[in-house]
Structure formats: C-alpha cells, structure tokens
C-alpha cells in the first residue's frame, strides 16, 4: 500500500509540474497543452471522435495477435526441447528475426498482403513471437536438472515433461517474455495503424493519433497516449501482477 501511495504522489507531482510549465509558457501553448485541455480532449475523444471504438478495435487486433503469437511461441519452443535439430534451426531463426523491427516489415507486408487486418495481425505476431520464444527457450535451458530428473523418474513422457516440468519451472522467464512481447506488440500495432490508416474493417488508436496530428490537435494526441498508458497500467497491475501473485510468488520462486 505504501508503494501505491508513493506512485500516486509521483503522478500528482508530474501533473503539477506539467501544469506549471504550461502556465509559465516554457513551451509554445500550441505545442504544449494544459492538463485540462488534455482531459477535455480525452472526454471529447470518447464522446464524439470514436476513440472508444478505435481503442476496442486496437485491442481486438492485439489480442488476436497475442493469442497466435503466444501459442506459436510455446509450440515452437516446446518442439525445440524435444528435438535438437528443431532447436538449432529455431534458435537461429529467432536470433535473426528478433532483430527486425515490426515497422520495417510493413512495406513488404503491404505489398504482399495488402492493407487489412491480416497484415496488422501479422505485424503483431512478428513483434511477440521472437522475444517470447527467446525468453521461453532461455527459461527452458535454465530449468534445474533436478526437476528434469525428477520428472524422468516419475515416468513423464516428452509432452508431459514440457507441460508438467519445463513450463512451470520456466515460468518466471515465460512471464517476462509475455511482458516483453506485449509491449513490443503494442509498438508494432500502433506503428502499423499509423502507417495504414483505416482498413476496410476499422481504425485503431494509431490512426486516431495520426489524425489528431494532422489537425494539430496536440491535446488529442496526448489523450490517445493516455489511453495507451491506461491500458498498459490495467494490463500490468490487473493481469500480469495477478498472474505473478497466483504463480511465482505463491510458489516462492520470486520475491
């Protein structure tokens, strides 16, 4: 609770400093909106400019991409535990692909697949698959030998070895992989949306930001950033922290 109090104090201080900078005109007013302006834009965004539905649309894209990416990462990393050949190839593939930023793939993706949901989801999958696989494989390799031997001794087969020993034992790594993947996925998504604009099936937060910029509505841009931050906080404290408490904290494998 003490840390929550400190976090709130910090945010309040930032807001006060922000407002003070605005009042003292440290930056031109056009470029630097007041706290009130931003809040107003936020309300207006949801009420009139469709920020709510755009947020939902972005969320739906990212959830689909995450689901595909996470499943793929588990399956491929799992296979790489079972087979040395798969490991050597997949490990190389991860090393190569992890370096390519999602944005850099967008031109290619547009040329090959056109502008559509599929393309955005592909970018999201790309953003999460490689870092996530890297974490999972690192985690698998760090599993203490005694758990593996225990598992062999109990008569686990290869598949139950992965689900029964490797995955839970590597959970701290997996969780950090999902966090990284989630963050990268957001970046990939927002960049793709800004570049794509609207697709036939809808527009997302990235597009909202892009449009606000063209109207030189800086408060609107900040409002959209706030939405992204809010989502990040909800996911971190609502989902990740909860998973952490239910798993690695409860098991005593992390402080």
């Amino acid at each position: 609770m003490k840390s929550l109090r400190n976090q709130i104090i910090f945010i309040v201080l930032v807001l006060i400093a922000w407002q003070a900078a605005y009042q003292m005109e440290v930056f031109p007013k056009l470029m630097f909106p007041s706290v009130g302006d931003i809040f107003h834009s936020l309300v207006k965004g949801f009420a009139k400019d469709g920020l709510g539905s755009m947020t939902l649309y972005s969320m739906s894209l990212i959830l689909r991409g995450l689901a595909i990416g996470i499943v793929l990462a588990f399956v491929l990393s799992g296979l790489s535990i079972i087979s040395r050949t798969v490991y050597s190839i997949y490990n190389m593939l991860v090393s190569m692909c992890d370096l390519i930023p999602g944005v850099a793939l967008i031109p290619l993706a547009i040329l090959w697949m056109g502008i559509g949901e599929g393309t955005i989801i592909l970018i999201v999958v790309h953003s999460i698959l490689w870092p996530m696989s890297r974490s999972i494989m690192d985690g698998f390799h760090a599993v203490p030998r005694i758990y593996i031997e225990s598992g062999e001794n109990m008569g686990l087969n290869r598949v139950s070895m992965i689900t029964g020993i490797y995955i839970p034992a590597a959970f701290p790594y997996i969780l950090s992989g999902i966090r990284t993947g989630w963050a990268r996925a957001w970046r990939g998504l927002i960049s793709a949306e800004m570049i794509f604009g609207t697709t036939s099936s809808g527009a997302g937060i990235g597009w909202f930001i892009f449009m606000r910029r063209t109207y030189v509505d800086i408060a609107g841009v900040f409002a959209a950033l706030l939405v992204i931050i809010a989502i990040g906080i909800v996911v971190e404290y609502g989902i990740f922290s909860m998973i952490e408490r239910m798993t690695i904290r409860k098991w005593g494998v992390s402080r």
Binding site: I146, Y147, S150, P168, A169, F171, T247, W251, G252, V253
Partner: peptide, 8 residues
Amino acid sequence: DFNQLLPW
C-alpha cells in the same frame, strides 16, 4: 538436494 520437490 532439498529442492527436489516441484515448487509449483
């Protein structure tokens, strides 16, 4: 090794 039980 004391850590032979599965901690999870």
